[in-house]
């Protein structure tokens, strides 16, 4: 019996067997959704039985209703729209600047010596510490928010671009040199494609930070946006509004990440990766 238990613990064995056994194959998404659904039911039940105080934690159905109402009166689209607009602009600016500066620093040793110390110094400042200064400089309108998001997005993208370029296989560059490629051609035909995976990783973690900073930016004062709904919910004692906003953040964050992931797997199909088995 002990032997059997042992062999079942070996993941390899399952992998090998899976194809020829026609046991019911449960999609991993289904397994993964069992627990959340169960918890939702318990939560709903407890709320209906008045075990959970509704002024602190309203039932899931109440939250869903809040979202539906917001959608019905049209205000939801404005909030989502402005939040997406801010993150899109900040993401574009931040990752664009990071790509530019990261490429220069990656390609030229001299540029690295010149730029890297100051960039590392700025990196050690927690980005939220910029908030008061940005508000002072640019007011509370869009500019300061977009800047904050851009700053948040910049660093992960920058770091990944630089390390991507620095870790390009020297052997591949030699192949290019053997065919007499110029520096520009080397960049275009070898260095850029070879560092693309790292750049995309940077974009994805940059986007994650972008979502974090859009919340911060909207908390610090906004008249519209999902972050504004958080503040509104706090001020009007409506937890359902806060949780609705959190849910929307989660859904949007996941959706935008899925878009990037799609781009990644489309453009990196040539990679020999564990994930693809």
């Amino acid at each position: 019996m002990a032997r059997q238990g042992h062999s079942e613990a070996l993941p390899l064995r399952r992998l090998v067997r899976a194809p020829n056994k026609k046991k019911l194959t449960v999609h991993p998404a289904i397994i993964g959704s069992i627990l959340p659904i169960l918890l939702l039911f318990i939560w709903e039940g407890l709320s209906r039985l008045d075990v959970l105080p509704t002024y602190l934690l309203p039932a899931p159905t109440v939250i869903v209703n809040t979202i539906i109402e917001l959608g019905a009166d049209g205000s939801l689209w404005g909030h989502i729209g402005i939040t997406l607009y801010r993150i899109f602009l900040g993401f574009l600016l931040g990752s664009g600047a990071a790509l530019l500066l990261g490429s220069v620093v990656g390609f030229y040793r001299k540029a690295e010596q010149f730029f890297d110390p100051i960039i590392q110094a700025f990196r050690s400042i927690p980005s939220l510490a910029w908030v008061p200064l940005f508000i002072l400089w640019m007011g509370i309108a869009e500019a300061s928010k977009v800047t904050l998001i851009a700053v948040g997005v910049f660093f992960p993208v920058y770091l990944n671009v630089v390390s991507g370029i620095l870790s390009v296989d020297r052997q591949l560059i030699e192949v290019g040199k053997m065919y007499g490629l110029s520096s520009f051609q080397l960049v275009k035909r070898i260095i850029l494609p070879a560092s693309l995976p790292s750049f995309l990783v940077g974009l994805r973690s940059g986007l994650g930070l972008g979502w974090m900073f859009v919340v911060a930016a909207e908390l610090m004062g906004a008249s519209q946006g999902l972050g504004y709904l958080l503040v509104l919910g706090q001020n009007t004692y409506s937890p359902e509004l806060i949780i609705a906003s959190i849910v929307l953040f989660a859904v949007l964050g996941k959706l935008t990440d899925a878009v990037l992931k799609k781009v990644e797997s489309k453009s990196l199909h040539w990679q020999d990766r564990m994930e693809q088995r």
Binding site: Q171, P193, A194, D272
Partner: peptide, 12 residues
């Protein structure tokens, strides 16, 4: 023309 010890193909 140079043929290296490893193939050194561009994976992309």
């Amino acid at each position: 023309g140079f043929i290296f010890q490893q193939p050194r193909l561009m994976p992309w």
